[in-house]
Computed example of a mutant assay.
Amino acid sequence: MTNVLILGGTGWLSGRVARAWADAGARVTCLARGARPATDGAEFVTADRAAPGAYDTVSEREWDEVVEISSTPEHVASAVAALAPVARHLTYVSSLSVYSANDVIGADEGAEVSAPLQPGEEYDYSRAKAAAEASVRDAFGDRAAIVRPGLIVGPDDPTDRFGYWVARLALAGREPVLTPTLEGRVSQVIDVDDLAAFLVACGAEQLPIVANAIGDPMPFRMLIDAAREVAGHSGDVVEADDEWLLSHDVQYWMGPRSLPLWLPSDMPGFATRSNAAYRAASGPLRDLGDTLRRTLADEAARGLDRERRSGLTRAEESELITARRRAD
């Protein structure tokens, strides 16, 4: 039986990876603080990764695969040092944010990454992931897969970004919905279950790979149109340009009073990364409609009009639409 250690294993992505490995017949162990339960059938090891000896128990056993997802460089460095002697392979979940710039369309894994974060420096996510990648390479060499996901989407997404659109369109029904200007904008996503399946495959096949785990770039208008179809939206789509939105305190990308996935126009490479390596390694990419349907079912179960971590409230949106129409 395959022995798999997941550092974490109780969050959104890592929990799905744990379940996918368990479904594949592996013996799964999750190491985490214990704030959330592990997937059914998994062994749970409680440990504070910031404490000395956090890996003492698991470093006494042999592992066919280790999955690491942390963006805390110190945690990753201590974990790989402790586990490299007893693990055959490690899959590290990095991020497309590890790259130092987003100005080149179609950039692949050879693009420059950020300078690794050094101890004592102010935290920076991109540099933290770069430091973690460096620790993984130093400890595991060609026994490691480094997977760089882009925007992860699908059911149970705790960020509320991608799901905002299909939920808002379903809630609006025949009424208008506000979007940024759609022409020329691009989006690029990866379904959480496709990513989980790929992470399992990396371990099962002991792949020595660096891969951008992301879907094909698509016009943002295509995403909105597909979401409208799934949601059954028949109202108007009211577009507003960047200057107008910013002047009305609407935020980019995520968070309260934002239009999720909307980005400044000076980041042309952000949602256009090459996924050729991922495809060459048989990384799965499901139909966008399937992801949207599963996401809408989850959003409906949680409440289309619930308080969200990202997006406009319906009241905020309606006020902005009125203001936009008056301006026209």
Rank of each mutant, 00 (worst) to 15 (best):
54 A>I: 11
219 P>G: 04
209 I>M: 02
200 V>L: 05
81 A>H: 14
39 T>C: 13
91 T>M: 01
144 A>H: 00
67 V>A: 14
236 D>G: 09
222 M>D: 15
28 V>E: 09
174 R>E: 11
24 A>F: 11
296 L>A: 11
229 E>S: 12
21 W>V: 11
327 A>C: 12
230 V>K: 01
270 F>S: 08
308 R>F: 08
209 I>T: 07
90 L>K: 07
62 E>A: 15
195 L>R: 00
194 D>W: 07
81 A>S: 15
201 A>Q: 09
176 P>W: 01
267 M>C: 06
82 A>Q: 09
157 D>H: 00
95 S>L: 03
289 G>P: 12
94 S>T: 02
54 A>V: 10
293 R>Y: 10
154 G>Q: 04
183 E>V: 10
208 P>V: 09
188 Q>K: 09
152 I>M: 12
130 A>P: 05
159 T>K: 00
292 L>R: 11
292 L>W: 13
93 V>L: 11
299 E>H: 00
251 Q>R: 14
214 I>S: 03
173 G>P: 03
208 P>M: 08
157 D>Q: 00
234 S>F: 07
296 L>M: 13
24 A>M: 08
186 V>T: 15
162 F>I: 05
40 D>E: 15
125 Y>P: 01
276 A>D: 14
202 C>R: 05
62 E>G: 12
104 V>T: 14
325 R>P: 15
175 E>Q: 08
299 E>S: 02
228 R>K: 01
145 A>L: 08
55 Y>Q: 12
225 D>I: 08
101 A>N: 05
312 L>I: 14
326 R>K: 15
322 T>S: 15
133 E>M: 03
21 W>E: 11
240 A>K: 01
183 E>M: 06
49 R>Q: 12
119 P>I: 06
98 V>Y: 06
271 A>E: 07
194 D>N: 09
169 L>Q: 00
198 F>T: 10
99 Y>E: 07
84 A>D: 05
106 G>H: 12
4 V>D: 02
252 Y>L: 03
255 G>H: 06
172 A>L: 05
249 D>L: 08
85 P>E: 11
260 P>K: 00
7 L>M: 14
207 L>Q: 04
124 D>I: 00
1 M>G: 10
126 S>W: 04
153 V>C: 08
214 I>D: 02
118 Q>G: 05
142 D>E: 13
209 I>P: 00
119 P>R: 10
313 T>I: 13
41 G>C: 13
262 W>P: 14
290 D>Y: 13
133 E>F: 07
80 V>L: 04
183 E>I: 07
111 A>M: 00
105 I>H: 06
111 A>T: 00
187 S>D: 06
292 L>H: 13
129 K>M: 01
290 D>L: 15
210 V>W: 06
321 I>W: 04
91 T>C: 03
74 E>L: 11
21 W>F: 11
86 V>W: 02
21 W>L: 06
20 A>W: 03
30 C>Y: 10
265 S>W: 05
